[in-house]
Design a protein around this nucleic acid. Structure first.
Lengths: 312, 312
DNA sequence: CAATCATGATGAGAATATTTCATTTTTAAT
DNA sequence: ATTAAAAATGAAATATTCTCATCATGATTG
């Protein structure tokens, strides 16, 4: 007999494209998933997907099960929500901090969904906090932190959301436009536009400029992505942003983008939560929604793994 | 996390009204079900039903889960059907014998459903067989037998369908009409109308008249229930039929009905199948459909799940 | 072209979860 | 009250699911 567990696994597999990552998402080992899927295949007496392709490719049987999963798992979630509400356990608090400034773009739909469906949970993104988010999380001043820099802290769980590449946005007529990639040194004579946060929190610095010991000629800050784009488009500077944050401007040929170094600069975003709150049904729901939403945002670009991207 | 197993159990519990019977239906012990439900209640953190009433009464949380079950289990079954078809395993044969003559009433919808959804399975109700059905089942001449008299035979599984009471239909003006119950002796002067089958297969004889060593004055036979009803209504005899077969005539005050003896005469109908064929997905589907349909007939409820499906 | 690396498969044993058995408690009926 | 049926319970048995360690495979790279 098919069980919901199997359907959840298949969804994770479709979203991640590999057993290893799917396993991480459902909190199991790769081995467990391999066994589970083999068992499922014997139950339905058909292969479900091909393992030799990246990302995995589903068979007709696999697609049929995915369709079932898409159809019923949301209903199951709805029911779980209703039940959690009936249980009448006092609902929690969800105060978030977001280290990655561009994340508002895909986080806001998740927050909206959440406000609709868990009205009892007090949701907030306190701005202008001066404390370090991760310790504040451990101290229970925060309940969730979106971060690209997971530090192992006792009692903190990091749920991976997705992987993205940082690109350098430049004006279309800029000499760097059209290059395969830029070297750190090439930025020494540029004006770099960033969000107004510490440099150590910006991937361009921590993963690109600082290791090469380069500083840009000038640094300007802007609050909003659209403002950065205007500055870049008019040739008043360059800026580094996640691929998905740039995609809409690239499609409209508003700016150009170049890889940062030959390998590119990659990060994985995590949602950090305390292990106790991880169990709460609303937290589970939030994380799954966040993962799905981010997946949806990214699918316009490509599957979220580093290898898949750099291969392309 | 909720699993499909839990939903299937809850459905069985609603249909049977007690743990003992629900357990039988899902092929588990009463103890297992008690544990499983307690576990489920702790997962959703609410009681699901009251055990002190017969039949059990569901709480709001229990009803919510039942609604979920009604919604998604039919979809799961559809998927399983599609998968069985994709697996391309050769499809079986379903030749049935029906010992209980009135059963055609509720069996026909099941057969129709089945023909639509498992066109590959060769379904047939060979009539006019002269052999004993149960041995013929063991001999693989038949694949399913509807019977009220389960004899333990090696390799034969009896899936209980439902329990019913045999009632005596009499004319509205008949002296027995209105009595609380009839004694076997009261039938010694009556004309008894039966289906044209061996007396040993009729509950009135095997459970009522024969133990009291009484024979009715005369015995007439009729092929169809409606014909029996006409004879009874016009005072030309009495006849014993299952409560559910009589209900439509009782509602229209066409005839009256009396209990057979103080305790009544009760039987359970079983679907007998060979253990090997029990596993086949189409057989599972047939049995579940038969159980649901018979349940629906008994409660007078049209099963919503079937409607939804046949609409699609 | 070997060496490396990542992915997925596999077998054995560990850890969980589920089920049964034997028994007790509870409830309803006489 | 007494009894019979139903449900709960604890412990043991069983089944299942998972992890660990390891291996095979294929791709990538120097």
């Amino acid at each position: 007999m098919i069980e919901l567990r199997h359907l959840r696994t298949l969804l994770a597999l479709r979203e991640t494209g590999s057993l290893v990552e799917a396993a991480e998402r459902v909190h199991l080992t790769q081995s467990a998933l391999s066994h589970q899927l083999k068992d499922l295949e014997s139950r339905v007496d058909s292969p479900l997907f091909m393992r030799k392709t990246r990302p995995v490719e589903f068979t007709r049987a696999g697609l049929r099960l995915l369709a079932l999963a898409d159809q019923i798992l949301p209903e199951v979630r709805k029911a779980e929500r209703d039940l959690a509400r009936m249980a009448g356990t006092e609902m929690g608090r969800l105060h978030m901090a977001i280290e990655c400034h561009s994340c508002f773009q895909w986080l806001m739909p998740t927050v909206d969904y959440f406000r609709d469906h868990w009205p009892e949970v007090e949701i907030d993104i306190p701005s202008g906090h001066h404390f370090d988010p991760l310790p504040a999380l451990a101290r229970e001043q925060l309940d969730l932190v979106i971060t690209a820099d997971p530090q192992p802290i006792e009692g903190i769980h990091y749920a991976p959301l997705f992987c993205y590449e940082g690109l350098l946005a430049v004006a279309r007529q800029h000499p760097l436009a059209g290059q395969n990639f830029v070297t750190p040194e090439a930025l020494a004579d540029e004006t770099l536009i960033t969000y107004p946060v510490e440099q150590s929190r910006l991937d361009v610095f921590s993963q690109f400029l600082t290791p090469a010991n380069v500083r840009p000629r000038e640094i300007r800050t802007a609050e909003l992505t659209i403002m950065m784009m205007q500055l870049v488009a008019s040739g008043r500077g360059v800026c580094a942003l996640p691929n998905w944050a740039l995609s809409e401007y690239l499609e409209r040929d508003y700016v150009s983008a170049v890889k940062l170094g030959e390998q590119g600069v990659w990060s994985t975003l995590y949602a950090a939560v305390r292990e106790e709150t991880l169990e709460a049904p609303w937290m589970q729901d939030f994380l799954r929604t966040a993962q799905e939403t981010s997946f949806a945002v990214l699918t316009g670009i490509k599957p979220a793994t580093r290898d898949a991207e750099s291969a392309a």
